[in-house]
């Protein structure tokens, strides 16, 4: 049975803890397909609106380079454990992009890390994690 996991990754420590959980699942069933998605916040908005001149080729290349560097860390993390993962790059609102990608391709699980800072009322979820939990129609795993 195919089971597809989408890992929302931004290079932060919580997202590597999320990657560790995905690896645990992968070890339990090597048939699981994993996609790592990294979103550059706001890039697409700049490209789409009247300020598109700001998104000149150099900047775009720099952003793509940055995205590649980030996702390579995850690719290597899984590679070191003997697993190949698919990698995706997007521009735009991170939560929005992750949810749309997961829903369009019917992922079975979206995994996201959260900072887990302690506030007055206990844990404060990261804003991206919070938004993903609220808007994503697919099951979401939250990793602290």
């Amino acid at each position: 049975m195919a089971f597809n996991i989408l890992l929302a990754a931004d290079g932060s420590n919580p997202s590597f803890r999320a990657a560790e959980k995905v690896l645990e699942l992968l070890r339990m069933n090597p048939e699981i397909n994993v996609t790592v998605i990294t979103v550059y916040p706001g890039g697409e908005a700049a490209a789409d609106n009247d300020f598109s001149f700001v998104m000149n080729e150099n900047i775009k290349d720099a952003i793509d380079e940055q995205l590649r560097k980030t996702t390579d860390k995850y690719r290597e993390f899984f590679k070191a454990a003997g697993f190949d993962v698919d990698v995706q790059h997007r521009y735009g609102d991170p939560a929005e992009r992750v949810c749309r990608f997961a829903e369009n391709r019917n992922y079975d699980l979206v995994v996201v890390g959260t900072r887990g800072l302690k506030g007055f009322e206990g844990l404060v979820l990261g804003s991206v994690a919070h938004k993903i939990i609220h808007r994503c129609k697919m099951p979401v795993m939250l990793v602290r």
């Binding site: 206990g122 844990l123 939990i133 994503c136 129609k137 099951p139 979401v140 795993m141 602290r144």
Partner: peptide
Amino acid sequence: MGSVSHKVLHLSPCPVILVK
């Protein structure tokens, strides 16, 4: 999100999967 799942997310010692 219901109050129970919200509170579990905040207090849980382990990862939580929320199913819609």
